[in-house]
């Protein structure tokens, strides 16, 4: 049972993390190759505060605020660059984050922070808490997607210049997307620190940023349920394909490649297409 609890908790954290990126990349069309940095800010905040004796629950809002503040900074910087330049700038953010954390003694430097105490939730309680937060953010995403703001995001993702001509304050909405997405990533980081009781600079690097982007794209960029399913699936897939042991990563990357090659609109696209086909037949 303990194994299942750990598994479900990790899935919930991944779902929250992937949905937070979906808010920026999926809704607002701003690609990010450095999203793990924001999760890292959240995780380190919780780790450092809990080491200082602050209870877990109290660290979550602080983690969200700090990650969101960094999100605003990166967002403002990102307003100056677009498309591929933006992708590489955000990639730079994650390298800077790792580079800076490595040199900070109060964050444990290379070794990271270990021995974070357990929260008062207990294991099952913590699992429920993670599921609750992930579900809450999924509902929030769905509400935003169908609101007026969702349409504005859509139009910015579709064509920034046209949106600007229509009188939309593009910069403002991009910043909103960045703040919400990065703050949620900070919360996911908080949960991560509590789940693993350890944070280190290698846990929030470029590879992690790419894997979370892979979750969003495999799920079907912008689709809330698609991304949630993909995040849950991809986060446990390395464990599920344990039987191919030595070829685990190879299988993972081959699947990712095949997905892009033959179904680039992701799970959501596959399902939408099959639903249409069935409807047409009936």
């Amino acid at each position: 049972m303990a194994y299942e609890i750990t598994l479900i908790t990790s899935m919930a954290i991944s779902v929250l993390f992937a949905l937070s990126l979906n808010f920026i990349t999926g809704f607002c069309g701003q690609i990010s190759l450095g999203h793990a940095a924001f999760m890292g800010v959240g995780a380190y905040t919780t780790a450092a505060m809990m080491k200082a004796g602050v209870p877990f629950i109290a660290t979550i809002p602080v983690a969200a605020v700090l990650a969101g503040c960094l999100g605003v900074l990166v967002g403002i910087a990102s307003l100056r660059v677009r498309h591929d330049f933006l992708a590489i700038t955000t990639m730079g953010v994650v390298f800077l984050f790792v580079g800076i954390v490595r040199q900070q003694d109060f964050l444990g430097g290379e070794i990271g922070i270990s021995g974070i105490q357990a929260s008062s939730f207990g294991r099952i309680g913590f699992m429920a808490f993670c599921l609750l937060l992930a579900a809450a953010f999924a509902v929030f995403s769905l509400v935003i997607k169908r609101s007026w703001m969702g349409f504005v995001f859509d139009s910015i993702a579709d064509n920034e210049d046209v949106s600007r001509v229509l009188g939309i304050d593009v910069s403002k909405y991009k910043l909103i997307a960045f703040v919400v997405g990065t703050a949620a990533a900070g919360v996911a980081g908080s949960l991560y620190a509590q789940q693993f009781r350890f944070v280190g600079p290698d846990s929030f690097g470029f590879v992690e940023s790419v894997s979370v982007l892979a979750m969003v794209i495999v799920g079907g960029i912008g689709s809330v349920w698609g991304v949630a399913v993909a995040a849950a699936g991809l986060s446990v897939m390395p464990l599920m394909i344990q039987f191919v042991d030595d070829y685990k990563i190879l299988v993972y990357s081959a699947l990712l490649f095949s997905m892009m090659r033959w179904a680039p609109d992701g799970l959501a696209g596959i399902v939408n297409r099959s639903v249409k086909r069935i409807r047409r037949r009936s």
Partner: peptide, 9 residues
């Protein structure tokens, strides 16, 4: 993403 997958593979 396809390119990154190829690289990891």
């Amino acid at each position: 993403i396809a390119s990154i997958a190829m690289f990891i593979a």
